[in-house]
Design a protein around this nucleic acid. Structure first.
Length: 275
DNA sequence: TCCTTATGTACAA
DNA sequence: TGTACCTAAGGAC
């Protein structure tokens, strides 16, 4: 379930799980991270950080060069938390952190690597502003968007432009603002971008809080509209994501889907028209 | 048991 | 644009 809200939630949860500062057992039962795990074994987790879909676990070993575990979940990565004692790990656990009270397992990440502070900085430098970071500058994203002939749907998924938005937030935020996903970035007005950004900040903070993506406004919930309750496949309540060929909740038109940059795009052709 | 799919990205051509 | 990579769940048989 990895969009930016998941990663920021994990940063908080990793920190909370190991807040005592006790030395951790760091292991890689699957084997691909064994050498780095051995270097960090018996050191405490010092801090955590998140930027877009990138997670950083900081270890207090200042005398060594490599201080951060850089994690990217990709499409399949998952993290599970549990109380001590940790059960025997399955052979897909890339990274296990454990102390006397808790354990955390990481499976299937695209990236799990030991990196230095300058290497971490280089990752921040190539990412766009993250709606979940207080230092984010939405104007930097708009400078790229307003100069681009690329569709707004593709730009929202480009982590160099804006960090943390994935396929669900992209589809949903464009629906909420009635923006045709195929509009070129340069046709997005400053007012539209301001509204999109502000909405993403709110939606994604809610996502961190509830650990799922909900985008349906209170006045459009099934209860408010006098319809039977529904559950969307991915756990949250949404307007268009993965609702291809079903009726739009607002106008009844069939939700459409199409491939765009190797991902599935979803939108309502009636609610989201070009101006 | 096999096949498809998934909230992602990097790299080759 | 296509392909490779990593895992697990759900549905078709």
């Amino acid at each position: 379930m990895p969009e930016g809200h998941t990663i920021h939630r994990l940063a908080k949860d990793y920190a909370a799980a190991f807040a005592t500062g006790a030395p951790l057992r760091v292991t890689s039962p699957q084997g691909k991270f064994s050498d780095a795990a051995a270097l960090l074994d018996h050191t405490p987790l010092h801090t955590t950080d998140a930027h877009g879909k990138h997670l950083f676990l900081g270890f207090s070993n200042g005398f060594r060069d490599a201080d951060w575990i850089h994690i990217h979940l990709g499409l399949f990565g998952k993290v599970t938390f549990g109380p001590a004692p940790a059960p025997p790990p399955t052979d897909t656990v890339r990274l296990r952190l454990a102390d006397g009270t808790a354990y955390v397992d990481l499976r299937g990440p695209t990236t799990c690597a030991l990196i230095t502070d300058p290497e971490k900085q280089a990752i921040h430098d190539r990412l766009g502003p993250d709606p979940l970071r207080p230092d984010a500058d939405p104007a930097a994203a708009y400078r790229r968007i307003s100069r681009s002939r690329t569709t707004i749907a593709a730009l929202l998924m480009d982590q160099k432009v804006i960090a943390g938005v994935g396929n669900v937030y992209r589809a949903e935020v464009l629906f909420r603002h009635r923006i045709d996903p195929y509009r070129p970035g340069r046709d997005i007005t400053p007012a539209e971008w301001d509204a999109l950004w502000t909405d993403l900040v709110g939606l994604m903070h809610e996502g961190v809080r509830h650990n799922r993506i909900d985008t349906v406004r209170p006045e459009h919930t099934p209860e408010a509209m006098g319809r039977p309750p529904r559950v969307d496949d991915h756990g949250g309540e949404v307007y268009v994501y993965r609702r291809a060929h079903q009726p739009c909740h607002l106008c009844g038109e069939q939700i459409r889907t199409a491939g765009l940059a190797a991902r599935n795009l979803f939108w309502c052709p009636s609610c989201q028209r070009r101006p």
